[in-house]
């Protein structure tokens, strides 16, 4: 896929938060990221994630990056 095309990365933060009974605010406080940024990620509006944010997210949610993100097939978008 040429990099000019829109990405097809889906963030599963919503599901992970629900499974762990966490709120966006609680997660934001825990990892030191603004609620707005967590919402951007949760609502699939993020275009890039810093490795430091990803590390903090994975630590807080006790997961791996692969659990947090998935590349969906074009038909699914």
């Amino acid at each position: 896929m040429p990099v000019e095309e829109p990405h097809r990365v889906q963030c599963r933060l919503d599901e992970l938060l629900a499974e762990r009974g966490l709120t966006v605010t609680a997660l934001a406080e825990r990892i030191g990221v603004t609620v707005v940024n967590i919402s951007v990620l949760k609502n699939q509006r993020a275009k890039a994630v810093r490795f430091s944010t990803l590390t903090a997210l994975c630590d807080a949610l006790e997961c791996q990056p692969g659990d947090l993100f998935a590349v969906v097939t074009p038909e699914c978008t």
Binding site: I38, V40, A46, K47, A48, V49, R50
Partner: peptide, 8 residues
């Protein structure tokens, strides 16, 4: 700029 605006 577009990338930075969507950077978390």
């Amino acid at each position: 700029r577009d990338d930075v605006e969507g950077l978390v």
